[in-house]
């Protein structure tokens, strides 16, 4: 599939009294048309910042895109002016959030909120837009869609509200949907339905999805490819199945190992010691080296680039060939 989005050396700074702090630093990845790419990382890894940067929805007074490019359909989203960006946002690129309640107007009927988007996107009248909103509700699996158009957000469950958000996103007929932790606030049974819905809609409409999550299980169930972020850098990238079953970066391996569902009950979990560094106190060299069981003096100096392997996997670790080889020899 042709590349839809190409992010190169993206850098995002946050302004602090002590000067700008890079919270995303030199991140590069491609998303093909119709691909679901997962961006995984722990709190503060920069995953949400990247998602917001793609729509240029960073909190402007504090954070800014300090470098790099985000090529989408021949245009660099990092350099578009605000007017041009308005033509992209809510049209070609759109976003859904973790907490639908705080992104829906509490005093407006949900059908009207979706119809509003339809009117703006398709330039149709109110009546047609309401009809289309009803169709969209049906498409996202809302039971009794036409009756639900008149509901207010508080009358719907969390899962239903997320479906409304997805309906509004679909109304934009996007080519890229950025989904920021869309199921984190939901129960597992509802989460499963929403993830299935995203995949079904992708299959039907062919848009690409960037799924931002902290949950490797969600990635395994939903994504085609995945990028792993640590302290603002991409440490590993590749196809979902290969990356999760055969991680090359020690951090990815540590994340997979920390999943309690994979461990032998009663045994200690192979936890990663320590905690991620603060963005004003980043270690030199590989940012993971203070927590890494395989760190050597060479890991503590210089810039460690993301190295792309012949099979398309990319990893940012000086020692990966050795570490991988050790296992093969064992």
């Amino acid at each position: 599939m042709p590349v839809l989005l190409s992010v190169r050396d993206l850098r995002i700074d946050i302004a602090t009294p002590a000067g700008p702090l890079p919270v995303v630093d030199g991140v590069s990845f491609d998303v093909a048309e119709g691909e679901i790419m997962g961006l995984v990382g722990e709190s503060g890894s920069g995953k949400t910042m990247i998602g917001r940067a793609l729509l240029r929805l960073l909190p402007t007074r504090r954070a800014r895109i300090a470098g790099g490019a985000m090529h989408f359909d021949g245009r660099d989203l990092a350099r578009l002016d605000e007017t041009a960006m308005t033509g992209v946002r809510g049209r070609d690129v759109t976003m859904i959030f973790q907490n639908p309640s705080s992104h829906l107007d509490p005093v407006m009927r949900v059908g009207d909120q979706v119809a509003e988007t339809v009117m703006r996107r398709d330039g149709v009248g109110w009546r047609a837009a309401r009809t289309r909103a009803g169709e969209l509700f049906a498409e996202v699996g809302i039971a009794e869609p036409v009756r639900r158009l008149d509901a207010y957000p508080h009358e719907l469950s969390g899962g239903m509200r997320q479906r409304v958000m997805i309906a509004a996103a679909l109304a934009c007929r996007p080519r890229l949907l950025v989904a920021d932790e869309p199921t984190t606030a939901l129960d597992v049974t509802v989460q499963k339905q929403i993830l299935e819905l995203l995949r079904t809609l992708r299959d039907r409409s062919g848009f690409a999805v960037i799924l931002i999550t902290h949950d490797l299980g969600v990635v395994a169930e939903t994504c085609d490819s995945v990028g792993v972020l640590y302290a603002g850098r991409l440490v590993e990238r590749g196809g979902c199945a290969g990356l999760l079953t055969r991680p090359l970066h020690p951090y990815t391996a540590g994340l997979v190992g920390s999943q309690p569902e994979l461990a032998v009950p009663g045994r200690r979990l192979p936890a990663i010691p320590g905690q991620p560094p603060a963005s004003d106190d980043l270690p030199p060299g590989c940012r993971f080296h203070p927590r890494c069981a395989h760190a050597e003096p060479t890991c503590t100096v210089g810039d460690i680039a993301l190295e792309t392997l012949p099979d398309g996997r990319a990893v940012a670790c000086r020692r990966w060939p050795e570490l991988a080889g050790a296992e093969v020899g064992a």
Partner: peptide, 15 residues
């Protein structure tokens, strides 16, 4: 991804 018999990390190649 599956637990290794030792209950240590699961990982294919790294650890």
């Amino acid at each position: 991804a599956a637990p290794s018999p030792t209950g240590a990390a699961i990982l294919g190649t790294v650890i």
